[in-house]
Every structure is written in structure tokens, then in C-alpha cells.
Design a binder for these strands. Sequence first.
DNA 1: CATCTTATTGACACATTACCACTAAGTCGC
DNA 2: GCGACTTAGTGGTAATGTGTCAATAAGATG
Lengths: 222, 222
Amino acid sequence: MKELFPIVAADVALFTVIDEALRVLLLQRDNEPQAGAWALPGALLKPETDLSLEHTARRALAAKTRVEIPHLEQVSVFSGPERDPRGYSVGVLFYALLPADQAPAVAGAKAADVAWSNVAHLKRPIAFDHREMIALATTRLRQKVERLILPLHLLSEKFTLTQLQRVCEAVMGTRLDKSSFRRRLRSEQALVEVPGDFEVGANRPAQFYRAARGFRFDIDIE
Amino acid sequence: MKELFPIVAADVALFTVIDEALRVLLLQRDNEPQAGAWALPGALLKPETDLSLEHTARRALAAKTRVEIPHLEQVSVFSGPERDPRGYSVGVLFYALLPADQAPAVAGAKAADVAWSNVAHLKRPIAFDHREMIALATTRLRQKVERLILPLHLLSEKFTLTQLQRVCEAVMGTRLDKSSFRRRLRSEQALVEVPGDFEVGANRPAQFYRAARGFRFDIDIE
DNA sequence: CATCTTATTGACACATTACCACTAAGTCGC
DNA sequence: GCGACTTAGTGGTAATGTGTCAATAAGATG
């Protein structure tokens, strides 16, 4: 049955890196349609309260997440009469990045219906067109990192260069050369050392870095 | 006054190159709100007939244009309660490319309310948030060309390398070096010669080229 | 035929990158 | 204490890509 007004919703691909693999947050659906299948967190636009669709997306995350509001970026719009059996729907896709150390707070021990699923091989059944959404969001994120726009939002405030490299490798799905990686970082001037602050372990300590002032991940609105 | 359902519309920044300048199609509004101001062509989503918002965008173009359906690409979504005085609105922005030789068919002699406006200095008063839309669409297009994704849709099927370079220069707003430009083209293998076909003029003839089979401008959906 | 204009190719310095090797600084086991 | 081990961080060289400028090619024009 066709509706006069479309359903307008925001969906969010929330990424993090766990075990050196890029993962996306999925929720198992309780209700029909597609009960049992896994979907991205999403929310319907509430015109009375949402100042924009980004606001809607934040609300969708807040409903299932106890963490700081993460970095959000718009990816694309999916629309059509057949996407959702409930009627014509317009879904605005965002992606967001969550530092790995905050990931456990989201998918808590009890929550059997919450999963950080490895993007490289999504084994769970995916609801609606969310598999395509995840693929597109992943591609978009990769393009950013390719263009040397560092996914610092996947790390905590302080991090070592090796940690940053591992995160970039997880996003890209390939290994990167240490020497080249660091040379490019130097020329970018995007990072600054945290003087006297080292990560200690069973080997040589590693210098901590943080984002230089004025760092922006969303470089294309100019 | 807040509405229960948002207005959902598609707007299109239709680009072409005239006089070696990147230009965008603007229409002067007849009706309130913002009567007299210039706006991008747009259309409201009709759930009964539009298979997707891209469909809506094509319809918006068809209403004011007599030309072949051009290449369309999604840019971004603009949303909020204040964008349009008629109520909460969700506007999906597309951009499209039109070969320069088809541009006259759009802005015909009679049409005083249709203009190909130079993107570098938009002097006309722009309606709503369409100035921001034009800026974002332009940036997106430039990023593509920067990444060596050739805007072949701005040219007719056959073209010379100099014509292609002029078009890229118009998009980027800078001059490009002939030698470097051609070297990059060679390594890309995106073009093939049209054997024995030359543009003749008051000087040395120029080889015509066309897109190689498998050419795609929309490289990021992968 | 000399001249003018644009097309097309070439040469070279310079910057960037991939790839591999090296040194540095800590812990661990003995 | 000392050598083995592990990871951090730096260098070096060959290959590749780029910016700049110049040279040559192929027409029209007078």
C-alpha cells in the first residue's frame, strides 16, 4: 500500500576497531518486519524536536549507546517504495567513529541483541538494504583515510603512531609501510607529541601523540 | 508552524561549461516564498510515481529542460525546520553534468527566467540555502576531477585532449599543465583514440578521443 | 615559402613513494 | 649483569610521479 508521505529516517553505521579489525554496530530486530535480522541503529525523523537529520542520527545512537556523542558524517540517501514494507521510505545514512576503548560500553555483556560485526565478513543476516549501506559507508571511510584524513576519532585522545597505523590498516584492510606512513604524517603536521608521555610495555616505550589544534576530520565542506 | 510530516524534495545543480567557465542552471522563482530570487531546479518527491529520489531529480530537470537525461549524482541532504518557511523540509541535493553543446537547448532565447550562472561569481540573489548547495556541489565535482575522474559528461561523445583540458580547468578554476595532464591521461587508459578522426581548424588538426569502454564517472560505490 | 597557431612529444630537475635495512630502548630469562 | 628478544624510530636507495620548459609537427594564411 502506497502512502502519501514517505517515512524519513536516519541510519548510522557506527564503526570501531577491535582486534585490529574494522567493525560496525548491529542490532537484532525485535519486531516485524525482518524480526531476527540485524540492522543498523536508526530513528525516524521527528520534525517537532530534531533540528536536522544529523540530530535524528544522534538520537538513534543515544537510544542504544551510553557513550559520548561521536563524530558523525553524512554518507548518502537511500529511497524508494520497496525498501521497507511499511511504505515509501527515505533513509539518510550517516557513519560515525567510536574509539575502541569505548566500544565495550556499547555492546555490554548482557546485550545479546547488540554486536560489533567484522565488516570484512558479515555473517549475520542483514535487514533491509543495510548491507549495501554498510558497504557504502565503509568505502566512504576508506576514501577519507586514503586521502590522508586521519580517523583520529577511532582512537582515544592520546595514541602512539603504531596504534594509529594499526587503525588505518584496519580501516583499509591492508598493511601499510611504517616508514612511509610516518613520513607522510610528519609532512602533514596534523599531530603533535605529548612531551614526556610514553606508552610503556615489554619493549621500547612509544611516544604519545595527539591531534594538532585545528584538526578536522570532515574536510570537504571547505 | 510545525508540520507533522516533512517536505521531501530533490534539488539539482546542473553544471555545464560555457566560455571556459563552469556554470550552473538557475531558475527565477515566480511564486512566494522568495519570489524573484534564483533557485536550483527542484521537485517534491511523489511517492506514487518516483522510484527513488534520483527519479525525482530527473523529473525536476525534465520540467525545465528538453535535453537527454544527464549524468546524476547525489551530493548531500539538507534538513531542518527553518530551511523553508512552508515547513520542515528535507532537501536532497544532486549534481548533474550537461555537455556544453546541449546547453543552449535549455536556456532558450525567450526564457528570461533561466540562466547559466558563472559559479565563480554568483551575482544573482539566491533563494533559500541554495548558495550553500551550489558551493557544496562544486566542491564535490572538483574533488572528482582532482582524483582524475574525468568529467566526460561535460563534453560530447568525441572530444580533443585540449577540449578536455579546458573543461577540467573550468571545473577546477585553475590552469593545468598540458604535458602533465596528458601524461596522466595516458597512464589512466580511460580514453581511446577515434582512428582517423581529427578536428580541423586554422592550425594543426587535433586527434579526437572518446571514453574507453567501461568508463564510469561514479567511482565510489564500487 | 615564411609565418602563425595549435597539437603533440620529449627532456630534466625535483618531489614523492615503496621497500628494505638499520639503530635505539626497553623487558625478560638466566 | 648480560645476551636474546621485541617493538620504536630513522635512513637510504631505486622506482615512480610531477612541474616546468622546450622542441618538433602539421596544418592554415598571406
